[in-house]
Write a protein that binds this DNA or RNA. Structure first.
Lengths: 223, 223
DNA sequence: ACCTTTCGTGATAGCCTCTAACGAAAGCGT
DNA sequence: ACGCTTTCGTTAGAGGCTATCACGAAAGGT
């Protein structure tokens, strides 16, 4: 199968120009953040004049949505490549960190400050689910037998998840695994986002060691 | 002492108008995010015309910086009020969550996606240090005697912090406490920011229970 | 009552998004 | 190879924004 569904030369050119626009967009985002993304400036950089790009993108919002989609896709592919031959949570976590450090603003485009009005389209959230599923799988592979008993004593969150596990779809993981996944997700995002936002700069310690320490705790039988 | 250093009626009026501008700014931020903040729109809302506000704020950036400062100040006051009579980490954490839920965009203005070029002024980071110090104090109060031994076996991050504890200033806490503070900070931020960003919506479970579960782990002798 | 400082205004430049109308170019079918 | 049709890129324009400037008006201080 052809990777791009472009038979006619027009669609070919169209897809190519769209990609070039997105390339410039990522450069702008990396250097000045997503809020500074200017469709007009991109047109100038490409030697085009102003409204030309509106033949290819309905507007700034559609371009950003496309970038969000590509970011999710890139993360899913990176995690998929980082977990070849069995779901290894440690490898997944380190792949996530590497991907985030390669372009912090790309990470923030997905997991950063949300725009109050914005709602991601269905196909984007589908990729987000795919990412979450990979992490759930890795968590399930971690504790295959004692999965249900890895709860912190006194905390009834596992029981609560038992009654609210619809979001996991048809995944056969016990609720203890789902709990572990949520903890993995939130803890990794916590260290990563603070590091990427620069809140550790000037503190002196190495953020990767903090990340590894948290990861160690996540891999333990009772997290 | 007077709370505002406004003796003359001009300074009085000036401070009052600045506050009114900030009030409208917070409303805009809460409903459309910080990137949609418009100095011009605020002027119109106040019955003023365009450039009038430039008598009171040097520009959009200065207004946002002022809002960031106020947000830090508000959080520091909230945490300070939530920890009267000894530093209680659980109370501090719940006060933090309540403050964040009251205005998610205000939380993101501090801990959200950073603008690549921006650097906070010194007095703002001073309030940030004050907040961190309150959390470090609460962590120190948690484990007064076995503080140094609460490390995860195999993870040498505590030893690393021993050599890089300059950021803690003159705080007498052992490195184990500093490690615990970092873990508290990153974990609470992890759950909170994902909840505030809406990444849990549609999942069915109650985010406060997840928060409480994480907090439970944080209060344990070995986190 | 005067003088000075401050305030708010309109005008202007430059950036942005996005729409509309027009001419040019390229692909497509015959 | 020729014409038709679709698409492309352009300029012009509306409306919004930040920010600066110069001017008149208002208010405070002496």
């Amino acid at each position: 199968m052809a990777r791009t569904g472009a038979d006619t030369p027009r669609e070919r050119y169209r897809a190519q120009l769209r990609e070039e626009v997105k390339k410039h967009a990522w450069e702008q985002i990396a250097t000045a953040g997503a809020s500074a993304l200017s469709l007009n400036a991109i047109a100038k950089q490409m030697g085009l004049s102003g409204p030309a790009l509106y033949r290819y993108f309905a507007g700034r919002d559609e371009l950003i949505t496309e970038l969000v989609r590509d970011a999710y896709r890139s993360l899913a592919d990176t995690l998929g490549a980082g977990a070849v031959g069995g779901a290894d949570l440690a490898a997944l976590a380190r792949a996530l960190r590497g991907w985030a450090l390669a372009d912090p603003q790309r990470y923030f485009l997905i997991y950063g400050t949300p725009v109050p009005g914005y709602h991601a389209p269905a196909d984007t959230t589908a990729i987000a689910d795919e990412i979450m599923r990979m992490l759930v799988d890795a968590c399930a592979a971690l504790t295959p037998e004692v999965a249900g008993a890895s709860e912190t004593p006194g905390a009834s969150f596992g029981a609560h998840l038992e009654a609210h596990r619809d979001w996991a779809g048809d995944h056969p993981a016990p609720s203890g695994v789902l709990h572990r996944f949520l903890v993995v997700w939130t803890r990794l995002h916590g260290v990563l986002s603070l590091e990427l936002a620069g809140h550790f700069t000037g503190m002196g310690f190495h953020p990767d060691l903090l990340f590894e320490a948290e990861l160690d705790g996540l891999l333990a039988p009772r997290f």
